[in-house]
Design a protein around this nucleic acid. Structure first.
Length: 209
DNA sequence: TCGCGGATGAACT
DNA sequence: GTTCATCCGCGAG
């Protein structure tokens, strides 16, 4: 059966100037919406537009940095823009972006992407066909983009292989809701997403703008 | 389309 | 031993 979603001609993402990136967790969570995650692999380049993020603030009980620095969470305390990758529920890798000045532990979780380039590679990696589901959810996203613990601590605005770029496609309609899947500080509305995007995760009731 | 329960592995108490 | 920032498959509606 023919694929209905052959690769679209898109403007290639460009590097982001660090001084343009906000050094604030909520501001970064909103700033990242509409930007493009790029992974340049040996055999393919995969890219996807960020359509859903969550903020984990300094002093936030749900943030992994809440109880201080450990071997696992140390990347959250680096300068803003570093990757923090960890294994969740023994099955799923989570990709975060550190979001505050050095020494302050906080980050932004990337929860969902709209696939733009390298969909065939994503399909092979995730063993799944439906375009909409390839990177919908934080664990699926890292599977499709082949992101793992070896990518912890990278500078996501400078790294030659795994980086976040800008293709001048602003997020028009940003909505917010409570965060998904947490028990502490569950009422804080710190999840941000592009309203109306079919590539956003979570139950429908949370995704109304 | 929705809600539920089990799998799963590592960090941490 | 407990706690997860999840995912998948199942069954009911």
């Amino acid at each position: 059966m023919a694929r209905m979603d052959s690769e679209v001609i898109i403007k290639p993402p460009e590097r982001i100037v660090r001084s343009n990136v906000p050094v604030d967790t909520v501001a970064l969570a909103r700033y990242l919406l509409g930007k493009v995650l790029v992974h340049e692999l040996d055999d393919a380049t995969v890219t996807g537009r960020i359509v859903e993020t969550e903020a984990y603030l300094p002093g936030d009980p749900a943030c992994h940095a809440f109880r201080g620095m450990t071997a696992r969470n140390k990347s959250l305390f680096l300068e803003h823009g570093r990757s923090y990758v960890y294994l969740c529920y023994g099955v799923s890798q989570m990709l975060n972006v550190s979001s505050e000045p050095p020494g302050v532990g906080a980050g932004v979780l990337l929860r969902a992407l709209q696939p733009l380039q390298g969909m065939d590679h994503m399909r092979r990696m995730s063993n799944r066909d439906r375009l909409r589901d390839l990177a919908r959810g934080p664990g699926r996203l890292t599977t499709a983009f082949r992101v793992g613990p070896e990518h912890d601590g990278l500078d996501l605005f400078r790294d030659p292989r795994l980086w976040i770029g800008n293709d001048d496609h602003p997020a028009a309609d940003v909505a917010h809701s409570v965060r998904i899947g947490i028990s502490k500080a569950a009422d804080a509305r710190l999840r941000f997403f592009i309203a109306g995007s079919p590539y956003v995760s979570g139950p429908r009731a949370l995704n109304a703008a």
